[in-house]
């Protein structure tokens, strides 16, 4: 028994199963972060005062992290392009680069969080910090999840590549879609939390 359209697209929809699946998943993610942004707006509009993010948070570090995530997006898309060219070693290199950049992001975040805790700033301190920690924390979980999947495909990809390179390419493309989405969320988080 074989499930159809795992690799090849179905003719009338032009899609394979995984592609449609990941986009539906991302649609639900949009709603998840949408609800959190709605909470942010409500807190901000409802509160008597709202601090400027930059007066509490570290903008240079966040700028660095933004650049790191954007760079990791380009390495991710290069990994996929390498697979399209059937160049496995370049693919593996780009995948590890992506994971490495993810690690850089987490390290910077670790120092940022540590700094806040050191200064006695906790989620319970103010509504601003509460929404800051919730949004960035949840985003961080997404980064970690993405890194786990990318590491898996970087390490276990070779046998998949030998068996069915197109399938691996599709799966890496879908992983990339998730990774770019995580990047995209950060693109909004950065100005909303740090600069406004």
């Amino acid at each position: 028994m074989e499930i159809p359209y795992i690799v090849e697209p179905r003719q009338d929809t032009g899609l394979n199963n995984g592609k449609l699946g990941i986009w539906l998943f991302l649609a639900s993610e949009v709603m998840l972060f949408g609800a959190l942004f709605a909470a942010y707006i409500m807190m901000r509009v409802g509160g008597p005062t709202w601090p400027l993010g930059a007066s509490i948070l570290n903008v240079p570090m966040a700028t660095l992290n933004t650049l790191v995530l954007i760079t990791s997006s380009i390495t991710m898309v290069m990994a996929w392009a390498s697979l399209m060219r059937r160049n496995y070693s370049a693919y593996q290199l780009y995948m590890f680069a992506t994971v490495g950049l993810g690690l850089v992001f987490l390290t910077v975040k670790y120092f940022e969080y540590g700094h806040k805790f050191h200064d006695g700033l906790y989620p319970s301190t103010s509504t601003f910090l509460a929404i800051y920690f919730t949004l960035t924390g949840l985003h961080m979980l997404h980064v970690i999840a993405g890194m786990v999947v990318i590491t898996y495909f970087a390490l276990a990809g070779r046998s998949m590549f030998r068996k069915n390179p197109q399938w691996l390419t599709n799966r890496v493309e879908n992983t990339g879609l998730f990774w770019h989405f995580v990047d995209l969320v950060w693109i909004f988080l950065f100005p909303v939390l740090y600069l406004m």
Partner: peptide, 25 residues
């Protein structure tokens, strides 16, 4: 289910923060 459940998940996360991390959402 796909589009309506995530906002409750977000709300659940916020309530967990209220209960465990002492926030006041």
């Amino acid at each position: 289910l796909l589009l309506a459940f995530p906002p409750l998940e977000a709300a659940g996360v916020l309530q967990l923060m209220d209960r465990l991390a002492g926030t006041s959402f």
